[in-house]
Amino acid sequence: MIPGPFVYHRPASVGEAVGLLAAHGEDARPFAGGHSLIPMMKLRMAAPSHLVDLAGISDLATIRDEGSTVVIGATVTQAALIRSDLLAARLPILRETALQIADPQIRTKGTLGGNVANGDPGNDMPALMQCLGATYVLAGPDGSREVAARDFYEAAYFTLLQPGEILTAVRIPVPPAGHGYAYEKLKRKIGDYATAAAAVVLTLDGSTVASAAIALTNVASTPLFAEEASRLVVGTSLDAATVKAAAEAAKAITDPATDGRGTAEYRREMAGVMVARALVKAADRARTGA
């Protein structure tokens, strides 16, 4: 299990990185933590002849508070997300999710940008970004553009990221203080991808759900924003029947594969269970301010 040969580039700026990708076309791949790409290269399932290491671009490793939005650079690691006091205060679901990704060592290398950009349906952050209504900042030869996380994913490993583009940052609108949140992930063991997982962010007005967003991980070839399920819970007191209906609506949009984690049927049902549990936990947190 040895990667094939490649030329290594370590640009110091986004412009330089984009230039390198343009120069080498489809033979080039950007990478940051490398924990998705290097295993694929070791299996010779990926054989880029040029690797563009983004770790040298210091601008990409920052977390910025812009008031109603938090901007997280692409090479911010999961470990840095977990350590961030800013995120703990304003977007605690990021920490909750990051802690459920892989293991401590991998979290020191794995980045938010890599997790959302490579299009692996097993990754946890894409559904969370859809839940939060985040946008991705993509830099290319013709400048920068933004794409909503909810629009970004087309199929497994296929995204709106064009050849030559780099995802440089994620812009996350901050939910109101006192919001409820939960990332519920069923997995076989530490280090595994989700059998099914659900992200929920909601706000309460008294005992009524004022807003809600639900998204799902690893139960289709892309992350899924569960629009119908999200809509169903708004205006309710999140009684048992509503939770059940939301879970059913979420299940209806899933299309999981049978794999070592279970049959397609099981994984679809687990998507429902995770949605139900995440809703209850999120509402509880909103109520108690926990």
Binding site: Y8, R10, G34, H35, I38, P39, D53, A55, A79, P104, Q105, I106, T108, K109
Partner: peptide
């Protein structure tokens, strides 16, 4: 100061 799995990292990344 961080723990890393050295099988999934190129030596050049540790420059």
């Amino acid at each position: 100061g961080a723990s890393v799995k050295s099988c999934t990292m190129f030596a050049v990344q540790a420059n």
